[in-house]
Design a binder for these strands. Structure first.
Lengths: 117, 117
DNA sequence: CATCACGCTATCTTTTTCATAGCAATAATC
DNA sequence: GATTATTGCTATGAAAAAGATAGCGTGATG
């Protein structure tokens, strides 16, 4: 049986008292959480659409993550599929800069591996 | 045997081709990654200090995460302990707003559970 | 009624994480 | 200089999470 979604106030990974940031990290630190939010930022997606966009995610885990993200008020399941809630969009706003940054990071990697040749 | 650190360009969870953002999400989506970066933002910490700040982390996982974060150029091991690299600080800069946001999120939670009483 | 796509559950295997003990190396203390 | 502490970490076994695959129930469509 899977564990319950991490919630602020409840004990979570990193904090017995459930400090909000730790609850958030616990949630986002589970496999596919970040990826799902990222995919949904491009519009609502059905379960199967998500499944194919997230390449190797298994339905079991996908469903579990969706339940958690829903319980955590970040996504919702509506007519057109799963989509970000207002909170979800807010969080995505914080996440968005990671996209650009990841390119710089990748560049630094290439640079670094050239240095080590 | 543990898997290798996710790197841009290599296949990672969510992307066979290793799209940088997916590599980053794979890295950050592993247990304790976010927590470790967060803790190190308050200054360098030794292995054991990290261990006690991260409450329940096992030495096995802590060491593995530290290796990965190091391989990914986000942290470094110096005299005074583990600390963020320049890249690590950059990334933390993006992460920092999550702290404030998590409080709003927690509030919304309380609000929501009141509504459902 | 047959077919199809959808959202998911069931089952099993593999991987990751946890929990605990403890070792080798260095530093401090007696 | 032997003893004790501290540090960084490995080993081992158990528990939990994630992955892979098959397929069920439902509702729409032909």
């Amino acid at each position: 049986m899977p564990s319950s979604p991490p919630q602020p106030g409840l004990p979570v990974r990193g904090s017995r008292s459930g400090k909000p940031i730790m609850a958030l990290f616990d949630l986002l630190g589970r496999s596919w959480s970040l990826g799902i939010l990222w995919q949904l930022s491009e519009g609502p997606l059905t379960f199967r659409e998500l499944q194919s966009r997230c390449e190797s995610v298994s339905p079991t885990v996908l469903n579990q993550r969706l339940k958690e993200l829903r319980a955590c008020l970040l996504i919702d399941h509506r007519q057109r599929g799963y989509e970000l809630t207002d909170m979800g969009w807010e969080l995505f706003g914080l996440l968005e800069p990671f996209g650009q940054w990841s390119f710089n990071w990748a560049d630094r990697f290439k640079q670094d591996s050239r240095d080590n040749e």
